[in-house]
Design a protein around this nucleic acid. Structure first.
Lengths: 144, 144
DNA sequence: CTCCTGTTTGACTTTATTTGACTATCTGTA
DNA sequence: TACAGATAGTCAAATAAAGTCAAACAGGAG
């Protein structure tokens, strides 16, 4: 898969987080931009789009001298139980497959079943189903 | 038998999928259109008509820079589904595991998710859910 | 020939990414 | 305290895909 600059920066940050002890990193926006030879606001863009709370990340920052951006990953499932639309269940499954917590056979089977079962439901029912599946899946994988 | 453009594009995509390791490909719509010297929406048409879920394919996509269309084949072919008794879903899963059509990891995950999702449903809803899952599963595994 | 169905095309829409000019907020020092 | 310098944030324009939709077209069945 051809990756965009944003994808690569996202990946880079995720690796740093996973390697860190406390699942938390502090970066300097300008420095990271330098690493990827891009404008600093590109980094802001990546953080704003990929490290949102709904994906299980918390971000804090400080401007000025000795400024930083801190990104913390918290348990994915803690907020899964709230409002989950279809797209995000699939994002979750994809992410779990990337992280090898689900292999592709399991992931694809799940996608198929969920799609198929959701097919003859109303929008609300489907949303509820997706929520339940996400919750059950995170339970099963012990993400809590 | 003269084949239409749509037929040729379909064939081309299917060959790519079958050749791929994970029975999954990512293409760029515009690039494929270029290959066949046609408008990009022709590719959309092919995907929309030939790679539907009912034919055993799952499609996902992303717009914008470095966008793509991902197509995954999850079963060889599936059509009519038998009506399975929902109450016997668990028997079915066990049987499939014994026959090695599902490995134990998949089977157990499925049981866990189905149980969990079914938990806050009424008896009738749960029965319906079990039926749908059984149908989706047999579709997926191409049992019919 | 006429109708119907499926195909082909292209104008328009939506979404995602990249870039840069401008703004806001810290820290440290005179 | 005021100012300078160092950071990060905001926002909108430019660009790069993919999706939608309806009109035009093609080729069989009757």
């Amino acid at each position: 898969m051809k990756r965009s600059l944003a994808d690569r920066i996202e990946q880079y940050i995720k690796v740093l987080i996973e390697r860190s002890e406390a699942k938390q990193i502090e970066i300097q926006r300008a420095e990271l931009a330098e690493t990827f030879s891009c404008v600093p606001s590109q980094v802001t863009y990546v953080i704003a789009t990929r490290f949102q709370e709904k994906y299980g990340y918390l971000t804090e920052s400080r401007r000025g001298g000795k400024g930083f951006v801190r990104i913390t990953r918290f348990s994915i499932s803690s907020d899964i139980c709230t409002i989950l639309d279809g797209d995000r269940l699939f994002d979750l499954i994809n992410e779990l497959m990337e992280k090898k917590m689900l292999d592709s056979k399991e992931g694809n089977m799940l996608k198929h079943i969920v799609l198929s079962v959701g097919n003859d439901l109303t929008d609300n029912e489907r949303k509820h189903l997706y929520n339940s599946v996400a919750r059950a899946l995170s339970e099963y994988l012990n993400l809590n």
